[in-house]
Design a protein around this nucleic acid. Sequence first.
DNA 1: GTGAAAGCGCTAACAT
DNA 2: ATGTTAGCGCTTTCAC
Lengths: 342, 342
Amino acid sequence: MTRRQTRFTSFDVAALAGVSQSAVSRAFSPGSSIAEAKRQRILEAARKLNYVPNSIASSLTTKRSNIVAVVLGNLANPFYVTVLSTLVRRLQAEGRQVLTFTVDNGAEADQALMRVLRYQVDGVILTAAQLSTRMTSICHERGIPIVLFNRYIPGSDASGVRCDNVGGGRMIAEAFLAAGAKRFALILGDPRGTTSADRARGFSDRLVEAGIARSEIRVVEGHSSYEGAYAAATRTFQRDSLPEAIFSVNDIMAMAAMDVLRQRLSLRVPEDVMVAGFDDIPDARRWPYRLTTVRQPVEEMVEETLSILHLDDPETPIEPAIDKVIPVRLIWRDTVRQPSSA
Amino acid sequence: MTRRQTRFTSFDVAALAGVSQSAVSRAFSPGSSIAEAKRQRILEAARKLNYVPNSIASSLTTKRSNIVAVVLGNLANPFYVTVLSTLVRRLQAEGRQVLTFTVDNGAEADQALMRVLRYQVDGVILTAAQLSTRMTSICHERGIPIVLFNRYIPGSDASGVRCDNVGGGRMIAEAFLAAGAKRFALILGDPRGTTSADRARGFSDRLVEAGIARSEIRVVEGHSSYEGAYAAATRTFQRDSLPEAIFSVNDIMAMAAMDVLRQRLSLRVPEDVMVAGFDDIPDARRWPYRLTTVRQPVEEMVEETLSILHLDDPETPIEPAIDKVIPVRLIWRDTVRQPSSA
DNA sequence: GTGAAAGCGCTAACAT
DNA sequence: ATGTTAGCGCTTTCAC
């Protein structure tokens, strides 16, 4: 089987249907003025030739590709899998394509972006990566809107959508406080990301407000991954010096902590140690975790992201950086003792 | 901030560098004949203007987009997350982009493909979806290679890469047999896919060869998802009529079965009931599952897929449908009793 | 090695 | 409503 060199073009269809080439173009552009009968004839001819318009060619003239780039950190954290699949489903539904990129967690996305820009993408959604301000201005110069998903870059003029990370951290602190905890541990994620830092800050600040000394909050670097947190928890937690409550800035690390507690130290959660996470990923909702956590409203965040992108009306000037913060809520499950009053 | 209408083109760079436009093109095409000094001067000018070549325009002439389409079922099964991320990493490394598509599990990918074809993609990788033979011939007509990942379409002339599903099913049967099991259950996945059917067939055939009556193999529809399998297992398995060994055609459903067994029926695995899966997803490797399973060699399967795609030399005629089957191996963990001899 | 010029397959004025 | 024409930003002969 050899490859045919040239696929059919609108000229071929035009010839077959006995019309002009521009008529073919119109037949495939919703809302353009063409007689319905003629359009049908053209569509018929197109079907015979298995013709579909060449988007590459049309992008060249319209300067719109209908492609959106999504830049992700690694997919080891199920939360970002949910984000990606929500984004893909949503964008596909409105007839757009998704160009997927991964960059190492916390690495600069500049290089990836540079490559993406060649494709005249209509917009960029960036999650889990750093971005230089030079890069954001390059995008702006070209009129490519870019929105940061669940992170912000201090001092940057890029828009972003995120959930209330600080508020979520506070909620966990309050839950622990209500359960009477006095000694805490805090498992941190990616040190370069604002997300982890914000959640940690909300948590610590609330504790300090309640009169807890900072020295009563042990800080552990979990590196945002199950493995990283598992190793760190194994090193840090010993039967003789245990915190009463552990807050992990994401669910995947909270699961690792629970595994260490229960499997290696034969401790019970929440009776011996309480644990809480952040994200509300599917895995942590189920037995044996049933994790108390803060839910990120992914659907809503995605809608908000898309609305900031303004994919429909590219003429809209890119808005001055907006920073949309979406409220979160606490999901009570089984890993934090709940005061009976609640 | 308003959007500038036109980004810089090779003409702008040429003007700034005092050369012809074609020189600029050459400066960005590795291996084209241009004096090194001149190329540097051009690159310098390009940097000043933040110029990057427009891939859309170049695709129009070269007929190659450097884009590969990946069509996936839903991402709820972590195995496909691994596949996607391996594919993305690998393709990115060689300078290609990935256009990601999802279609409902088992649904036809025809429509998605039609859309993808507009983008002159250099190749298509299809996982977890059905495809009409009409569609494969349309791709072939256009010289777009397509490879089926972990599935095949009987009677189709599309190439495919898959692991030895039948062989893997047999391995599990043998493991169960060696442990002395006599009554079995088999949790099926997507009824429209060949993958689930092949694994099930290998399993059943081996048992029958060993003298087990087909009536001793209870078949359960798990619909390929955790939730589906959890519901089915809850309905099917009761304390008074239990199989001795359960084979689930994928890990995610095996995890669901274990959860039902242990949490709802208070049974022990493997002491009371043995369980085995297929895929070897990260989650199932860990406590509390430690699942005995068949590992799919994803990296190898991806390499094979890419090599069949022949992205580098598009002139190569598309090979007659090749059906590459990669051997698998059994990963012994804790959910199947292991004869001490082994 | 380098520049001029002819497309690639479309869309968008512009006529009619 | 329809056809004609001029690009979109590149790559690629083809001369020189």
